[in-house]
Simulated scan of single mutants.
Amino acid sequence: MQEEVVKILDKIKPGLQADGGDVELVEVTEDGVVKVKLLGACQGCPMSTLTVKNGIERTLKEHVPGVKEVQQV
């Protein structure tokens, strides 16, 4: 599952990078929790929770079977 998550994150990254941010994969747990770290302009942004839940989590759940949640660390 981790390889699939990395492929999808690589597709998400250009949109974040266009706004001066980025995302880094920290961990994929066996129970389907993906832990990510937001970088650059995304780090500390008031919209970061929306980015994680409505952007990254939604996209990963659509494309990677087994992803249950995305957590920002």
Rank of each mutant, 00 (worst) to 15 (best):
V67G: 04
G66A: 07
D22K: 09
A41N: 07
Q43W: 04
K37D: 02
I56C: 08
Q17M: 13
P14W: 07
V67Y: 04
K7R: 06
G21W: 03
G32E: 02
G21Q: 08
D10M: 11
I8H: 08
E62V: 12
V67N: 06
L50D: 12
L16G: 01
L25P: 04
P46A: 12
G20H: 11
T51Y: 06
K13D: 02
V73W: 00
D31V: 04
A18R: 12
V73C: 02
D22C: 11
P65S: 14
K53E: 13
V52F: 03
E4S: 09
K68Y: 09
G20T: 07
T49I: 13
E27V: 03
K37G: 01
E27K: 09
Q17D: 10
A41S: 11
H63Q: 15
D31Y: 05
G21R: 05
T51Q: 06
E57K: 14
D10W: 08
V6M: 11
G15D: 10
P46D: 13
V64C: 06
L38D: 01
K7Q: 08
M47Y: 09
G15C: 10
P65Y: 07
G20D: 08
G40P: 04
Q2K: 06
C45I: 09
K13R: 15
L9G: 04
I8M: 09
V67H: 04
T59I: 15
V70K: 01
P14L: 13
K13I: 04
K68L: 14
P46E: 13
E30M: 06
G44H: 04
M1D: 00
G66M: 05
L9C: 10
E3W: 00
G66N: 07
H63S: 15
P46C: 12
R58F: 14
V36R: 00
G44V: 03
V33K: 08
L50N: 15
P14E: 14
C45A: 12
V28Q: 02
V26P: 03
L25A: 03
A18H: 14
T29D: 05
Q71M: 09
L25W: 01
A18C: 11
C45H: 08
G32C: 03
I56K: 04
T51I: 15
E30L: 04
G40W: 03
M1K: 00
G44R: 02
M1W: 00
